[in-house]
């Protein structure tokens, strides 16, 4: 059992993600967030649990549902909100938005608009760790929808052949876009792990302590040079594929069951049993709300991105050759 101070910190990180995404949902409804928004509300235990096992120099590649990964890896709320609200002060200068939040300074290689698109990036990042002799691992977050992408199968094979320091983390929320997982994938990830002789472990993606413990068990062998690892976390999808998705393809009972799995409520109950009272959690919540509101206010006040600067930013500047 994790001691209260660590669980409290994990709770704080999960609550930060939950409240940030709830705020985004409202901003989206109010027209302050353009484009598409894919929320990970309900899934917070996975990014928080996994990133608790990571060092700053470790790298993660993420998915279209990537806000949690970004914040759990350490992205600042100011740059996060400003990006998703399309401002010049955004972490990607307003050029990427929700689906491309990235922060190279903390090893966050980007949310990704392409299902499975982050898998080869994480594989390459793990290769770089290996070639450079760095004591780091790369994590490839992917959803169950990506199991049917060829990229996963190519990367499992390559990572195993080269014994890369790579942890494949599947967030299995049971839905690939508008269709249930069982209609999209004929195999099991565990069986794929066995086929490639890659250690596989499953964790309850609603239990942040379970995820953190499993992540440590997968990250450490990868860090020691024992090759790639797989962690599959069952996690609920509370929201639609995107904000505004009426989810008519989902039975109300399926949605209710998902909403019954609440990582934050589970952690709060456990903390209460350990003697952390509601007032302490309330104080954490108030601090989070303050930070979020400050970030939103700063984003609202920030400038729109400059088109000329964007045009000039298509290519990185090359050294001059004769």
């Amino acid at each position: 059992m994790t001691q209260a101070p660590l669980l409290l910190e994990l709770y704080r990180r999960m609550a930060t993600i939950r409240r940030a995404e709830e705020r985004l949902s409202k901003l989206f409804a109010d027209g302050e967030v353009p484009g598409f928004l894919h929320l990970s509300i309900g899934q917070e235990a996975v990014p928080v649990g996994v990133c608790a096992a990571l060092e700053r120099g470790d790298t993660v590649a993420s998915t279209h549902r990537g806000h949690g990964h970004a914040l759990a890896k350490g992205m600042a709320l100011e740059g996060f909100f400003a990006e998703i609200m399309g401002r010049a002060s955004g972490v990607c200068a307003g050029r990427g938005g929700s689906i491309h939040v990235a922060d190279m300074s903390i090893g966050m290689l980007g949310a990704n608009g392409i299902v499975g698109g982050g898998l080869p990036l994480a594989t390459g990042s793990a290769l770089a760790h290996q070639v450079k002799g760095r004591p780091n691992v790369a994590v490839a977050f992917f959803g169950d929808g990506a199991m049917a992408e060829g990229a996963l199968h190519e990367c499992l094979n390559l990572a195993r052949l080269w014994q890369l320091p790579l942890v494949f983390v599947c967030e299995n929320n049971g839905w690939g876009e508008f269709s249930p997982h069982e209609r999209q994938f004929a195999a099991k990830l565990a069986a794929l792990g066995a086929a490639f002789a890659i250690p596989y472990e499953e964790a309850d993606g609603t239990d942040v302590e379970a995820v953190a413990a499993a992540a440590r068990r997968r990250v450490e062998p990868a860090r020691r040079g024992e090759g790639p690892q797989i962690l599959e976390c069952r996690t609920p999808r509370w929201r639609g594929h995107y904000e505004g998705d009426p989810q008519k393809y989902r039975e109300p009972s399926n949605l209710d069951a998902a909403r019954g799995q609440d990582a934050l409520a589970l952690a709060a109950a456990r903390l209460a049993a350990q003697g952390v009272d509601a007032e302490a959690l309330g104080a954490i919540e108030r601090a989070i709300t303050e930070r979020i509101e400050a970030a939103v206010a700063a984003a609202r006040a920030a400038a729109e991105p400059d088109f000329a600067a964007a045009v000039a930013g298509v290519y990185a500047e090359a050294r001059a050759h004769a």
């Binding site: 080869p120 994480a122 594989t123 390459g124 450079k132 390559l158």
Partner: peptide, 24 residues
Amino acid sequence: RVRDTPISEAAIAGAAAGAALSGL
């Protein structure tokens, strides 16, 4: 530094991009 890959062009190019993002 010099490696044979399996016949996996998507992974070859994608891993190159990821490696380039991480210092190679």
